[in-house]
Design a protein around this nucleic acid. Structure first.
Lengths: 155, 155
DNA sequence: ACTTTATTGTTCAGTGTTGAACATTATTGG
DNA sequence: CCAATAATGTTCAACACTGAACAATAAAGT
């Protein structure tokens, strides 16, 4: 890369992605602060929402949905169980599998946290026309498709 | 939140933001894997790029640009200095301030890493029309504006 | 000139995440 | 039926990040 070679920030796609990354980081930090009163962090909320939607999901499946490693789940889930937010039960058919459920307390915390998250996102995105949001979502789904194909190609 | 109350994923803005967040996460992970050969991680690259662009920047200013805490800079920067990637020098006028510079090695690693990052972003975003990328960037800048205003309001 | 307040960087303890290695269990293949 | 392979969850050590507290220095106020 010499003087005549363009720099990353000269590429419009680069600059647009940097803006996306920065917005994400700020939104994540804002959500984290908003959740402090419930004494949970954003990874906990991701877990709770997925157990809310997919009762009885396995740790492996949850890790796959959250795009994190199994070891991460093995660290976080026992802590959340100890907190009384979730419950882990053995599978009927497969002794290797643990299935995950929300407790009453967990369900309550999840519902309150979802309101916080939804309100934050709706408020921050409300100036954006809904069709612009939909177009953005469509772009992101295609980008996700490319990146996930990359992962499959690496295996 | 009862049966008749909508769930977060029923809100189009919510769903569109989740897509953005997921795309960011995958892109970040992909970039991290791509940087492994240079023996750096994405936070290191963020630092290197900022020193490349703003030679002599202070730790405080760098933390502000990267949206992380000063303590994080105080942990990472000495490690990068030890690696021979950067150099920290006292300020002429203000004994409190440390100013940050890239070494020759650091500059070389930065240039190679920027090529990796630019190629990844260009490739992943190449199916998206450039005007859609620009529209997306504009939305994100407005979202950043809202979130940063929130921060100012909290102080 | 001196006191008070603010700024910069450091240290600390805690936390989420990673990838490799491992133990146990299930599936596949011969 | 048994060996080989794959799947699930755990443990480990390392790392980035956080927020509070602190020390040294600069700026503001009296």
């Amino acid at each position: 890369m010499n003087k005549n070679q363009s720099l990353p920030w000269d590429h419009p796609r680069f600059r647009s992605w940097i803006a996306v990354a920065r917005a994400c980081q700020l939104m994540q930090q804002s959500l984290g602060r908003s959740l402090a009163d419930l004494d949970i962090k954003t990874p906990h909320l991701d877990i709770l929402i997925n157990l809310y939607r997919f009762e009885g999901i396995s740790q492996q499946e949850l890790a796959r949905k959250l795009l994190v490693g199994r070891s991460n789940m093995s660290m976080l889930l026992p802590q959340m169980e100890k907190r009384g937010l979730i419950e882990r039960r053995g599978d009927d058919k497969d002794k290797r599998v643990l299935r995950l459920y929300l407790t009453e307390e967990g369900r309550s915390v999840t519902e309150r946290a979802m309101v916080i998250q939804t309100d934050l996102i709706d408020r921050v995105l409300s100036p954006e026309p809904i069709d612009q949001c939909m177009a953005m979502a469509s772009s992101m789904e295609r980008i996700i498709g490319v990146l996930q194909q990359d992962l499959r190609d690496e295996d």
